[in-house]
Nucleic acid binder design. Structure first.
Length: 564
RNA sequence: GCGCUCGUAGCUCAGCCGGAUAGAGCAACUGCCUUCUAAGCAGUAGGCCGCAGGUUCGAGUCCUGCCGAGCGCACCA
């Protein structure tokens, strides 16, 4: 019996009590959200619900009276061993071992799709993240989004959503010109302009451009600048794509801002918004009246000099996403861009959408990196940035992705290079991966002992003999089964709240629960002992745990090693 | 000055959109390897959940104010 099934049973009990006039009809007038929790305290049972407390007001009865009515009905449900009333009116529920143990086999059979849910089924989502300027390497802040955004994409998909991952390439504007001018200056042996880019990658790009196209030095003035800018853009974008690919972060769409301008989409967007009645002409400029929708000032779309602003492109970009059929647009922005939130919402509102439905902005707080107690600031224009590549080089893809994705994006995160470079137990990813490797080892040994056949684990277990779920009665086995049952709920809440770090935290807990089980419950027979039903039951439990650990790590884009 | 985000163990962070005695990892200390991976397990210690009010059966969680940290407040990109 899973938590979801238990919640259904509780709902039935409530309805039944209403039908028997023990509770008033108002209780079920509105849809009831039955919360089933796993209590911290063992004495509080396998599961607990506070439903009696929640509905006592509408029921017009003290919580404990409500609880009594539900207790009597739940006690008779198949698979439920006991129901106790505790405290102010909690219902503490204990399941029969077999009802819980059955899950082990179900998970093994389900395999890679265990943990997928349909809570977001049919929702069409655009997930935009990183969206860096193609004027330099990706830095630590981008790395956070690469890890978190990619994990979120996987989690949303697992929840049934139709997700398009998108990278908005900011390839318009003076930053691009400064980028080009910087490379050009190097090539000509001149000093890089004050407002240019001073990173070590600039001379490298410059040299590569000249090597591939020596004729570029024959150009002059604006032509040369444009040639450097365009060539550098191509190389740098490619570099970002390669790095992200190596990082395991995949994008469905690389959307160039330039295309918005060239296709006339920006002009069309301004006209469209004008039709909606939110555009003003003032002081020779064209404004979007975002203050109609909570922004603190109106925003310029076309400057008095005729130039279109970045904001105008943003508006066009949103309208483009909308036309492509996305119901929800998720933006992941750095903390230094949080001022955009109201603006983005105002664009949606001006276009006639409900921002609460169509816009979801996630703010990523700063990633700091500490080295010898000294904080290193990240600045894109300064030369001493820490890049995504640096991070990967130090700790590897798995540790980098995991340590960035295991924390909520909206809390500032400090990574310690000492810890990250030590490659020891201090990194939680090892605990989780170790659990996977450990289980794999047990299953390998089972194959060697001829308890299991080689090949597909589900088939091997099937052939090994009967599975008796009622044998998994040890406290640690119950803990493990309970943890395994949580996985779909974790995925659902991670997707709903756009918080993939929940998956990581869950995995750490699951790994700990497995290690405790492993310590207390010997799986394989010693020496020439018989292969008992208990051995088979525990092998199911091990295999099920491995499935969940592997599925969870996959959601984070982290590998699940068979050996460590 | 206005706004956004954040303040939880020595450190890094969780806390399941109001539930029971606030958790994990690391660091410290004590035990456990002739048996499935000791990258593990068991235990000890560590807390005014920034401060003060409010809302209610019940607050780390919601509201208000204050303090502190970070970041924003362009006809920049």
């Amino acid at each position: 019996m899973t938590p979801a099934e238990l919640a259904d049973a509780i709902l039935l009990a409530v309805r039944d009590a209403v039908a028997a006039n023990e509770l008033p009809a108002e209780v079920v007038a509105a849809p009831l959200d039955i919360k089933v929790e796993r209590p911290r305290q063992k004495e509080h049972g396998d599961y607990a619900t506070s439903i009696a407390l929640v509905i006592s007001k509408t029921a017009g009865k003290p919580p404990r009276d409500v609880a009594v009515a539900l207790q009597a009905r739940l006690s008779t449900v198949a698979g439920i061993e006991s129901v106790e009333i505790a405290g102010p009116g909690f219902l503490n529920i204990r399941l029969e071992a077999a009802a819980q143990g059955q899950l082990a086999k179900a998970i093994v059979t389900t395999g890679a799709t265990y943990g997928t849910v349909d809570t977001l089924k049919g929702r069409v989502i655009n997930l935009e993240f990183i969206s860096a300027n193609p004027t330099g390497p990706l830095h630590l802040g981008h790395a956070r989004w690469a890890a978190v955004g990619d994990a979120l994409g996987r989690v949303l998909s697992a929840a049934g959503a139709e997700v398009t991952r998108e990278f908005y390439v900011n390839d318009v504007g003076v930053q691009m010109d400064r980028f080009g001018a910087s490379m050009m200056a190097i090539a000509r042996g001149e000093a890089v302009p004050e407002d240019g880019y001073h990173g070590a990658y600039i001379p490298e790009l410059s040299a590569q451009i000249v090597a591939e196209n020596p004729a570029i030095m024959e150009l002059s003035g604006v032509d040369q600048l444009q040639a450097f800018r365009d060539a550098g853009y191509t190389l740098q974008l490619k570099q970002q794509q390669d790095v992200l690919s190596q990082f395991g972060t995949h994008f469905d769409v690389w959307f160039s801002e330039t295309t918005l301008h060239n296709s006339g989409a920006v002009d069309a967007a301004i006209e469209k918004l004008r039709e909606q009645g939110h555009v003003d002409d003032k002081d020779g400029a064209v404004w979007l009246r975002t203050t109609d929708f909570g922004d603190d000032k109106d925003r310029v779309m076309i400057k008095a000099d005729g130039e279109k602003t970045y904001f105008a492109a943003d508006a066009a970009y949103y309208l483009d996403k909308r036309e492509r059929g996305f119901q929800q647009c998720i933006y992941m922005l750095g903390a230094d861009h949080h001022g955009y939130v109201q603006r983005l919402r105002a664009i949606a509102a001006c276009a006639g959408d409900d921002p609460d439905q169509s816009i979801d902005v996630l703010i990523g707080q700063l990633v700091k990196i500490v080295e010898d107690g000294k904080e290193m600031r990240l600045s894109k224009r300064a030369g001493n940035i820490i890049t995504l590549e640096d991070l990967v080089e130090w700790v590897g893809v798995d540790a980098a992705r995991y340590s960035l994705a295991r924390s909520s994006a909206d809390t500032p995160l400090t990574l310690d290079t000492k810890i990250l470079t030590s490659r020891t137990t201090t990194n939680p990813v090892f605990t989780v991966q170790y659990a996977h490797a450990r289980i794999s080892s047990v299953l390998r040994n089972a194959v060697e002992l001829k308890i299991l056949g080689s090949g597909d684990i589900a088939a091997a277990l099937e052939q090994a003999g009967e599975f008796d779920p009622s044998l998994l009665t040890h406290e640690r086995e119950g803990d493990l089964l309970g943890a395994l049952a949580e996985f779909p709920r974790v995925v659902a809440s991670a997707a709903e709240l756009s918080e993939p770090h929940r998956v990581a935290r869950y995995l750490e807990e699951l790994a700990g629960t497995y290690h405790r089980f492993y310590d207390a419950c010997r799986v394989l027979p010693h020496g020439d002992e018989d292969v008992t039903d208990l051995v088979r039951a525990r092998l199911h439990l091990c295999a099920a745990t491995r499935v969940v650990v592997a599925n969870g790590l996959a959601l984070l884009g982290v590998s699940a090693p068979e050996r460590m």
